[in-house]
Nucleic acid binder design. Structure first.
Lengths: 194, 194
DNA sequence: AGATAATCGGAGGCTGTCTCCGGTTGCAGG
DNA sequence: CCTGCAACCGGAGACAGCCTCCGATTATCT
């Protein structure tokens, strides 16, 4: 009775499948940032040297592919929260994180559309990412509230919504300064009424 | 030599053309709000009882159609600015207008994508609307600055960007309260540093 | 009414999405 | 090693939406 994989253990994926999956992800990342969220999937398949069927088996819908591509990005943002919280005073941590958020989002145009669901749209696809992002800003806001720098009744979501707006318009010239100013306004507006 | 329309005067449009144009606009408004910005144009043509060719002659691209549909909405928003400015104190006028903006935008999902260009995206298609919206918020902000309720160095665009974010996420439950809170935060954050 | 110019609308080319399935290839167990 | 099975591969093709083209139709002017 050494090994028996009758049905429970799904068997480890074949190496070629794994390789293909990664090639597709690579190509997709490139394609999405170049052509936006509606780049041709068939093209990506061709460019990754696989058939369309393979692509669609790995990523049944466009959304699953997008999600897979930008999951890494989301994890970076979540990780940054921990770093900022550990090294900066509450308000500065929040500010730094908000700026980073806008930066990263803006860099990858893909994400913006997907974020709709992050903040509560109908699709349940991005649930995992939603949890990460929300957890990050929740922690930062909670900390800033505790230190008395932020109004007690602030809903972190409100800030998130505004940030998404900023990222949507990130193509416009001078958006970086604008984003910085917007973050300032938001933080100022979130301080306790004196 | 009574009338001569050799080439200059373009001749008034045929009544059937006019009628078709309006039917298309009606159907398009409905379709866009129901299915979002990428509803099928061929479907609209069918539903309006015209051929695809007719639709595309009236509105060469999807964007021109969108613009035509939401132009009315934009004009309403611009008009409201004048009303508010005439009847409310500066800050309240600004607040009221911002809320109205989010409301109207949210009602028509179509607009959000189009607004990218309003705030300065690459497309020149929505130039007219951009001018209207920008003029409105400029006037309100300028007035509130003059009355000393708003920081002198505030860029109206910054507010606009945040509002667009709010409208993007307007499908989420409770977005109306969220929008209201966000507007409050923005206004508070825009007051002069004491 | 007749000429003229604009409009109508559907057929059809094109492109992209997604499915289906025969052929192929890696992965155990003998 | 080698054999069988399960999983994977990939391209053909059905389908849908976008947009164009052009013969037939209809309004407008003289």
């Amino acid at each position: 009775m050494a090994k028996k994989r009758s049905q429970s253990v799904p068997r480890k994926p074949r190496t070629d499948a794994q390789r293909n999956r990664e090639r597709i992800l690579e190509v997709a990342k490139e394609a999405f940032t170049r052509f936006g969220a509606d780049a041709s999937l068939d093209d990506m398949a061709r460019q990754a040297g696989v058939g369309a069927g393979t692509l669609y088996r790995h990523f049944p819908t466009r959304d699953t592919l997008i999600e897979a591509v930008y999951r890494g990005e989301v994890e970076k943002i979540a990780a940054a929260q921990r770093k900022f919280a550990a090294t900066l005073p509450p308000v500065e941590a929040l500010r730094a994180w908000m700026l980073l958020f806008v930066d990263h989002i803006a860099a990858k145009q893909i994400i913006a559309p997907a974020l709709n669901s992050v903040v509560g749209g109908p699709s349940k696809l991005y649930e995992g990412s939603r949890v990460l992002i929300q957890g990050a800003i929740d922690a930062l806001v909670k900390r800033a509230i505790k230190s008395g720098d932020i109004r007690k009744d602030l809903d972190p979501f409100d800030l998130l919504r505004a940030l998404i707006g900023a990222s949507y318009t990130a193509s416009a010239p001078g958006w970086q300064q604008s984003a910085r100013r917007l973050v300032d306004i938001l933080i100022t507006g979130s301080r306790p009424r004196k």
